[in-house]
Amino acid sequence: MPLLEVKDLQVRVEEREILHGLSLTVNKGEVHAIMGPNGSGKSTLSHVIAGKPGYEVTGGQILFNGEDLLEMEPDERAAKGVFLAFQYPVEIPGVATMTFLRTALNAQRKARGESEYSTPNFLKKVRDVAASLNIPQDMLRRGINVGFSGGEKKRNEVLQMALFEPSLCILDEMDSGLDIDALRVAADGVNALRSPDRAMVVITHYQRLLNYIVPDFVHVMSKGRVVKSGNKDLALELEASGYAQFEEA
């Protein structure tokens, strides 16, 4: 059974159809890149998979391990193993990152019927993961993402990914706003999480990110559909020729 099956998905936002019958199948262990011009519906796809309010699904379905994902609340999806790394992680002053991480992790574990982490085990786990991503401890004591640079925010997303151990990671424009060094650190964090039990969907406008996170499959989206699929060479082709050929299609 595929991990994720998107079938003929049609989505509207405020009466305007954004996705016009999109299909995508992702198996465990695979890394898929979704590329496409601005406005092609890449971020909409990631939001609908994660359950963001404001999108109306008018047709098609999304199955996750065979279960109907669209019937689930966002927190249920997270507990089942869906993780969205946000393009623009929000700042939440007054909620300490540590408190948030522990509340979220234990909420997910509880939803799965697992026991909550003890404080020492939790702290050790966070410290280890943070150290591997060069995230200093004092950042974890601050409000969520408050005063973080763009790179720090993205690393904080990778930290959560490592901590929650999801089976499906969707990375929405992870490279936006990052310089090359910050990108490399974040990408290394992501690569360390590649595993036969986990799949990744990497959404990006630019091919550059795919030099660091090398995909097994590349899909090109245009006007709310996947218009072409291939292997990593497709990304290089796009880099050379641009998206114009698909826009006219």
């Binding site: 963001k52 309010p53 927190d75 993780f83 939440i92 979220a104 992790l105 909420a107 939803a111």
Partner: peptide
């Protein structure tokens, strides 16, 4: 803020838990 609520819910917090965390932060000031 709906975007803050969604961020927290996407990380596994129920609606009430997410609201409670944001309310505590609001009151904390």
């Amino acid at each position: 803020d709906e975007s803050l609520l969604f961020y927290l819910r996407a990380r596994g917090l129920s609606e009430k838990e997410a609201q409670a965390l944001l309310i505590q932060a609001f009151v904390g000031e």
